[in-house]
């Protein structure tokens, strides 16, 4: 049986460093037995992030990017976070969930795909590619990690068109030729952040939690 999931929706733009600190604190608190599984849902202030890599070519011209760059403790190539994009950080103790990081990632994908369907967008997976896609357009990025089997990082799904232009300055996730898309561009009817929050919250609760 899955443990309860406490969803914390942050209603103000969160800096990437604050978001990282929130996650670090939650991981420590879960490891100390002080809190249970927690899911942060938020929007970040505009920022490019990249993993600790020697090859940072996905940032292209890092000195002329329109937003700051942050080198984070995850792996992987460059991505962008900012307004119009819903970010979720599930901080879950995977010990009672089978210590399966692949399963954790696939469950997040499942929840995102189901939420997209609820919003009238037919999205799915692509062979060998993490994330959620509409045909060959990338709608959501997923990157997860664990510390002592407590998960960190999570997903970022583009909701409104405002989230897309900054991706043009980088090679998202180091994938050449991939274009990013958003729910608003793929849906037949308008989708704002409020609707996206409701749909995502419901599906993530259903998939990752039990309460």
């Amino acid at each position: 049986m899955k443990p309860p999931l406490d969803i914390q929706r942050i209603d103000r733009p969160v800096s990437y460093t604050d978001g990282l600190a929130m996650q670090e604190n939650a991981v420590a608190a879960i490891l100390a037995g002080e809190i249970g599984d927690t899911l942060f849902l938020l929007e970040h202030e505009p920022i490019y992030t990249i993993g600790r890599l020697r090859d940072q070519s996905s940032l292209r011209a890092s000195t002329t990017l329109p937003h700051p760059v942050f080198e984070t403790n995850r792996g992987g190539q460059a991505t962008y976070h900012g307004p119009g994009q819903l970010v979720g950080y599930p901080i879950l103790d995977l010990n009672p969930r089978g210590r399966d990081l692949h399963l954790h990632l696939r469950l997040i994908e499942d929840a995102l795909i189901a939420a997209c369907a609820d919003l009238g967008v037919s999205a799915g997976r692509r062979e060998g590619m993490t994330g959620v896609w509409v045909e060959n357009r990338k709608l959501a990025s997923i990157g997860v990690g664990v510390r002592k089997w407590v998960s960190m990082h999570g997903f970022a799904i583009n909701v409104t068109r405002e989230s897309l232009p900054p991706f043009l300055a980088i090679t998202p996730c180091g994938l050449d030729g991939v274009s990013m898309t958003c729910l608003e561009a793929e849906a037949a009817e308008p989708i704002g952040m409020a609707r996206a929050y409701v749909a995502l919250e419901a599906r993530l609760l259903q998939t990752l939690g039990c309460s």
Binding site: G76, Q77, G128, G131, V144, G145, R147
Partner: peptide
């Protein structure tokens, strides 16, 4: 992190 799955990768 102890283990990670990176964004965009398999």
């Amino acid at each position: 992190l102890d283990k990670e799955l990176s964004p965009g990768r398999s």
